[in-house]
Write a protein that binds this DNA or RNA. Structure first.
Length: 719
DNA sequence: TACATTGCGATCCGT
DNA sequence: TCGCAATGTA
């Protein structure tokens, strides 16, 4: 049949094995997205599956959309009715249907980490812990880990421990109470609440477990304990799980993901069929071989045997540059050059980096060189202040119990309600265990307020009530406009300086447009759904891959994507591997996987750049080449010489810049000693500082080109 | 009591 | 570079 025509035997098995659990171990570029789409199409057309019996979990919302398109292209509109989305969006959907059983009303608010942090700060201050060494961020991270591991405060307490841990449990308890009182869920709740629901309400579990005969999960290596438990429960009736993943691409351990979910699949589902996809359709032989050489140095991994029928292709280009500015210029120049010489298009390129902070100098260079680019991530649209403010209004209108959003807007724009007045209101509400919104209807009872403050609170309460009445029957777009006007926010923006005012007004216009677009596209265009979507969008979801521009993103965001030409910027110790991973073997292995993920995004060409130093917040910092670069076998590597006049002015070519203090200046003729090759004489020298590339003639006439880390070479005095 | 300013500290990856 | 907390001023 046509669905199987273009698939290799392994892929065919992964598609057609429709009874019982299946584990697909899919190497980078082995066509797993294709397999998933074809499997769904096969289920619908050949296995008599009904759309509503299928649940497909993808890693991003964007991937879900693309999957739906592919399935539709294969089998037509039968595809609608399939539940497809991220764990978080699917769980939100489950909770809106069945959450009431856990006391979660369907108009719940989803708190992001900023909201969580505000809540925890309030709790710390209520518990009188503001002066302790307990920081809100540390608390949040510990609570989040506990939740991802499905540990309740009681269970966490049972693990016992230090006085700090006991305090932590107290805060955790209060935090959970506050979330419930606010009718709010954090990201972890979205997953653990359905698990709790299914564990305590057998009929709710049966409703979903009976329904979903076929469950497909992409990127299974990056699921956490709670997600694993959810899959186990949902598959308890039919055991029709198809998990797809690659342990070498597990890069979210730091967020609680646990690769043993993948490694133990066969233990959890003993009857599972295991399919290995080892043919790589994406990369050249060179890129594949180099990436394998790097990932094979990890100890905790399943061995695999990836191969490709693709051509050998060009070598991987390594370029050593002076600093982040030169790096940006190098990349922008190389893009122009490849467009001119090889007919590449802008959208063929991606620049990958470890940290978002690296995007700035890169952007600057692209702007200077007039190379169009799109940036993924960084400051999210929905995190801009004016957007968060307006969203907070909308949240309070939908969910009056949301105290975090209410505290955000009670004095924005300024209405003369300061800390003192607000804290009186808060104390009043805490005493009576009522929400801030309810407190606003009982201002007369609050003690110790002067009449002016009282009047301001009443006015704010009236504003909310007025908005709630006025929004009835209106569209999302109209509601946003209404709120922006009546809250005084638009007027407030006019008071800012010109540039600021225009930019922010434009952003609000964009939010209104977003509301309109949502209205147009959504099957269920309610304000609740809009807010959910806004809370769950990911940076990568907003990326327009058809735009004619170079893409800039973090290595994490590049997961699942591919590009003809990939640049990995900042291949330096401290960046990748990131300095926070130096002390921990497991974290270091994750950094290596991250680098591996970056390399394997490339189809044809891979460029890696490494700077001699960077300007951080504390001035100039010399950098050292990443160990991962040094692990690439020389045969796959070509060192792009900076003697190319485009990248280094004449006077900088042979004379390393002694910019970095007491570092050695190496000149032609300098004697060096290497522990393996003995003493030699420098005959050539390019690059800068620690990025210096030396051509050294050793005793016995052996000539070596070294990407010299000074650490590897000794410089005997006065020789 | 509300709001502006200054200064300091942190600063990876992100649902 | 940025957000936020402590401090100063109306």
């Amino acid at each position: 049949m046509h669905l199987l025509r273009d698939l290799n035997p392994g892929q065919q098995e992964a598609v057609t094995r429709v009874t019982g659990p299946v584990l697909v171990l899919a190497g980078a570029g082995s066509g797993k997205t294709r397999v998933l789409a074809h499997r769904i199409a096969y289920l619908l057309s050949a296995a008599d599956a009904r759309p509503h019996e299928i649940l497909a979990v993808t890693f991003t919302n964007k991937a879900a959309g693309e999957m739906a398109d592919r399935v539709r292209a294969l089998v037509g509109s039968v595809a609608s009715g399939i539940w497809m989305g991220t764990f978080h969006s699917i769980c939100a959907r489950i909770l809106r249907i069945e959450g009431r059983r856990l006391g979660i009303s369907p108009d719940f608010t989803i708190y992001d980490d900023r909201d969580q942090l505000l809540l925890i700060k309030q709790i710390l201050s209520d518990l009188g812990l503001t002066k302790s060494r307990i920081t809100p961020a540390a608390v949040l991270s510990r609570i989040s880990w506990a939740k991802a591991d499905l540990l309740s405060p009681e269970e966490l307490a049972a693990r016992g421990g230090s006085p700090y841990d006991k305090r932590l449990v107290d805060i955790y308890v209060e935090y959970e109470n506050a979330l419930r009182a606010n009718n709010a869920l954090d990201f972890d709740d979205l997953i653990c609440m359905p698990v709790r629901l299914f564990k305590h309400h057998g009929d709710a579990l049966r409703r979903f477990a009976d329904r979903f005969k076929y469950i497909l999960i992409d990127e299974y290596q990056d699921t956490n304990r709670a997600q694993y438990e959810l899959v186990r429960l949902l598959s308890s009736s039919h055991r029709g799980v198809c998990a797809v993943g690659d342990d070498d691409q597990s890069i979210y351990r730091w967020r609680g993901a646990d690769v043993t979910n993948l490694l133990n699949f066969e233990r959890d589902f003993p009857e599972a069929a295991v399919v290995r996809l080892e043919q790589c359709y994406r990369s050249t032989k060179t890129i594949l071989a180099a990436s394998q050489a790097i990932i094979q140095r990890n100890i905790k991994r399943k061995d695999k045997n990836l191969w490709t029928g693709n051509p050998v292709g060009r070598k991987i280009m390594l370029s050593a540059v002076r600093d982040e500015q030169a790096e940006g210029e190098f990349v922008a120049d190389m893009v122009s050059r490849l467009i001119g010489e090889e007919g590449k298009r802008l959208s063929d390129f991606v620049v990958l980096y470890r940290t978002n902070a690296q995007s700035r100098p890169m952007e600057d260079a692209f702007r200077r060189k007039a190379v169009p680019y799109v940036i993924v991530g960084g400051i999210k649209f929905y995190e801009r202040k004016e957007i968060k403010d307006l969203i907070a209004y909308l949240r309070v209108l939908v969910n009056p119990r949301d105290s975090v959003s209410l505290s955000r807007i009670i004095n924005v724009p300024h209405r003369g309600i300061g800390d003192v007045t607000f804290n009186r209101l808060r104390a009043f509400c805490n005493d009576r265990k009522i929400s801030l919104s309810e407190g606003l209807t009982r201002v007369a009872e609050i003690e110790g307020l002067n009449s002016a403050s009282r009047g301001k609170l009443v006015a704010f309460g009236d504003l909310l009530r007025g908005l709630r009445e006025a929004m009835a029957g209106k569209s999302v777009e109209e509601i946003i406009k209404l709120v922006a006007e009546r809250s005084g926010y638009m007027a407030y923006l006019q008071t800012l300086d010109r540039v600021e005012s225009i930019a922010r007004t434009e952003n609000i216009g964009e939010l209104v447009a977003g509301g309109y677009e949502f209205q147009d596209r959504s099957e269920e265009p309610t304000l609740e759904k809009f807010l959910e979507e806004v809370s769950l969008v990911m940076d990568i979801d907003l990326w327009d891959d058809r735009r004619d521009a170079v893409s800039l993103m973090t290595l994490h965001n590049a997961k699942g994507l591919e590009f003809p030409v990939v640049f990995i910027a900042g291949a330096e110790e401290g960046l990748i591997p990131h300095h926070t991973s130096f002390e921990d073997r497991a974290e270091m292995e994750e950094e290596r996987r991250l680098f591996y993920v970056g390399m394997t995004r490339a189809k044809e060409r891979l460029f890696i750049s490494t700077a001699a130093g960077r300007r951080g917040f504390k001035g100039w910092m010399p950098q050292i080449v990443s160990r991962f670069v040094e692990d690439i076998p020389e045969e796959y590597l070509e060192i792009l010489t900076l003697s190319d006049e485009r990248y280094a002015p004449e006077e900088e070519r042979n004379e390393p810049q002694p910019d970095w203090g007491e570092e050695k200046v190496v000149r032609i003729g300098t004697l060096v000693r290497h522990e393996e090759w003995g003493t030699g004489r420098v005959v050539g020298c390019e690059g800068y500082g620690k990025q210096l590339r030396l051509t050294v003639k050793f005793g016995g006439g052996r000539v070596k080109r070294l990407l010299a880390r000074y650490a590897n070479l000794e410089f005997p005095e006065d020789m």
